[in-house]
């Protein structure tokens, strides 16, 4: 990608809430890049957008040192004409830059629990400071130093713990360093990857809401979220009214969740999704009620 295209991506992507460069709270995005220019442009855009939204921003670095990232961030601020000074933002507590060595590894060994604890602690910190939420950008190249299966599991657990809440989490994947298959697997665990089906979800007091689309490009993300419903020992409603597309595997996962649960599960959904559930015989599950959302 050329520099001018990087700039264009900044200008166009930056302002659209819900884009990969300006993620909504609750989004968990897999953001691939092919060049370092593209990677750095995204670091800048996501940092500036997050701060502008009144969030705290956490950057987890791997390919660059924190000092190099400060250098990338220095420059004209977001349309204000002011010079953005990363160190000032850090001193003010609005920006934190942490090498993956400190957030994802203990004494050089990958520590799955540390990574998730670190994110949770950052969220509590933001809440105390009265921030509107947190934007976290992780250079996913740390996974190249960790066990592929274990590190992918951390991405999936991130869905269950954080997505749909106070955190926008973007994982930058280097297409040059991850094989096509490894990247596809990673993308499928992320509810959102640009150019692929986008799933948004939130845990609610009554259960879960699902919105967007589910297909083979984000199916593992749906699985990780539904898994959290299985042990909940009360009746739950999955409001899938805003789910525009669901594939057969997604329908099977919904039915399986209801089948594994002890209490009743209600799925409220479009007539098309209700029909799909009926075609795969989800109505055979005793503790599942499917209710087409009425107009």
């Amino acid at each position: 990608m050329t520099d001018s295209r990087d700039t264009l991506a900044l200008v166009l992507g930056a302002r659209t809430t819900g884009s990969a460069l300006n993620p909504r709270l609750g989004d968990h995005v897999c953001l691939p890049f092919d060049t370092d220019g593209e990677r750095i442009a995204a670091v800048r855009a996501i940092t500036l957008n997050g701060l502008r939204e009144g969030r705290l921003v956490l950057l987890v670095t791997e390919s660059d040192t924190p000092q190099q990232v400060r250098g990338h961030l220095a420059g004209p601020g977001d349309g204000t004409g002011e010079w953005f000074d990363a160190e000032a933002a850090e001193a003010g507590g609005r920006l934190t830059i942490l090498p993956a060595d400190e957030s994802h590894f203990s004494r050089g060994r990958f520590d799955p629990d540390l990574a998730l604890t670190c994110l949770a602690a950052f969220g509590r910190h933001a809440e105390r400071l009265g921030a509107s939420g947190v934007s976290v950008l992780v250079d996913a190249s740390w996974r190249l130093r960790a066990d592929p299966g274990l590190s992918l599991e951390v991405e999936a657990r991130g869905n269950a713990l954080f997505a749909g809440s106070w955190m926008a989490l973007v994982c930058q994947y280097d297409r040059r360093r991850f094989s096509g298959e490894a990247f596809d697997q990673a993308a499928a665990v992320h509810p959102i990857t640009p150019g692929e089906a986008e799933l948004r979800f939130a845990r609610t007091p009554g259960g879960l809401t699902l919105a967007g689309e589910v297909d083979g490009t984000n199916i593992a993300a749906l699985a990780s979220v539904l898994d959290t419903l299985v042990p909940v020992a009360r009746a739950l409603t999955i409001d899938a009214t805003a789910l525009g597309y669901l594939d057969a595997e997604g329908a099977r996962l919904l039915a399986r969740t209801a089948e594994l649960r002890v209490n009743e599960t209600v799925i409220v959904c479009s007539p098309a999704v209700a029909r799909l559930l009926s075609l795969i015989r989800a109505d055979d599950v005793d503790r599942l009620s499917v209710r087409p959302a009425g107009p």
């Binding site: 990247f183 596809d184 499928a188 990857t193 692929e196 089906a197 083979g216 490009t217």
Partner: peptide
């Protein structure tokens, strides 16, 4: 198509 193109192909 490949895995990443499922949505676009659909």
């Amino acid at each position: 198509f490949s895995r990443g193109r499922i949505t676009a192909v659909r």
